[in-house]
Design a binder for these strands. Structure first.
Lengths: 216, 216
DNA sequence: GGATTAACGCGAAGTTGCTCGCGTTAATCT
DNA sequence: AGATTAACGCGAGCAACTTCGCGTTAATCC
């Protein structure tokens, strides 16, 4: 995507720019660790990172933008498994999610991102597209299971993956308790049982794939 | 719990106080409808309700407090069913939740409350205790099913109820798409299948009931 | 009815968050 | 190396949010 010929009016991503980005994101992460999103201020980030406040506003526009970029930066820590069987994959993925959110700072982060999405429309777009993308990737895990004959062909991969992730976010955002290993195990078992029972069959079996009804 | 003898230094909840409360909460609800939590300002609420800003700050401390009180006020719209069978109850409850969050204003509201909890510790406490309470109430629905012999005795009611609610909040907060009837049906079927498969068996079968491990 | 005093209205003052213009630093290219 | 110009540092200034003191309204009690 970057311009090949290094146009004279182009950007300058190397060296100092990359250093400040690194310093700022780690500062945001540390600040989230102590005090959560409530205590996360542009000035705090500026102090800890050594970057001036005006620079933060210029590059990230607001605190919501900072938090969103941190999420997309850290999300690569949750790998997509391929164990050979769907129950194995579900269990592995659930454990990865559980390990990821076992860190309180990660819970604070996703909390902050959801909170950011409630205020900043741009953050909402980032959040939706980010999880939409990961949903498609994880969906392939389910598609492989369908090919192997573990599930019926009308199973909707994204429903399965959503069902696997949902309990963790419920635990963090609504119940507001830490995630533990038990949640991972029970969720993996539950989704596998539900999928086999046909709970995640795709409804719009014609060309329709995103069945939004009336309510906006 | 209120003092019986109307102590001279007591509060004064009748008449005007109740009117302003009503006016303010409806104003918050309407303001959430257009613009969401992002556009929700104390001044906007003051203008629409006709109540002075200083009064809002005095009674509710901040916008987070307002939103929390609105949630507890509107939550009575989700009834707890008793159809005679657990799959019937699960289906009915899922439909109630789906109907409740079919209204975009309700999605904005829960979004706002979660966002509030991320910033204000008091709001976080309100949110946790609120859902904890409803979890216990809905858990009786599952306990009745255990008594009827529909599920094994070691089933943890709260896990079942959490599993039923989780997909809706995932849809609203993470996927950021409207909830529809299909989600209700698929969730009810999924939870029923998972519960029968023993996915929600209580782990701490000794006296332990809240098994938090190491991570804080 | 009248007295008492929560609860509210009002405007000013204090605090914080955010933006802007300009000078400086240091990538990038020749 | 030297020139060009993104990206950054700095502080002033604007705007929004929040608080405070005091006078007024209207529940509640007698």
């Amino acid at each position: 995507m970057t311009t090949a010929h290094h146009a004279p009016g182009g950007s300058r991503p190397g060296g100092r720019t990359a250093r400040t980005r690194e310093a700022v994101l780690t500062a945001v992460f540390k600040e989230l660790g102590r005090g959560g999103f409530a205590a996360l201020t542009m000035e705090k980030v500026a102090q800890r990172s050594g970057i001036h406040v005006a620079t933060l506003y210029r590059r990230w526009r607001c605190i919501e933008g900072l938090v969103c970029e941190l999420l997309t930066d850290l999300s690569s820590d949750v790998p997509l498994p391929d164990t050979g069987t769907l129950p194995g994959d579900l269990r592995a993925l659930a454990r990865s999610i559980s390990a990821f959110y076992g860190d309180a700072r990660m819970r604070r982060l996703i909390e902050a991102v959801v909170s950011a999405a409630a205020r900043d429309p741009q953050a909402a777009t980032v959040l939706r597209s980010f999880f939409g993308e990961r949903m498609v990737l994880a969906g392939r895990m389910v598609q492989r299971a369908v090919v192997r004959g573990e599930l019926s062909a009308d199973t909707d991969p994204e429903q399965v993956v959503s069902a696997l992730g949902a309990p963790f976010y419920y635990r963090i955002l609504i119940a507001r308790r830490p995630v533990d290993q038990d949640l991972a195990e029970s969720t993996a078992i539950a989704v596998w049982a539900a999928a086999r029972a046909g709970a995640y069959a795709s409804k719009g079996n014609s060309s329709n794939n995103s069945g939004n009804s009336k309510t906006n």
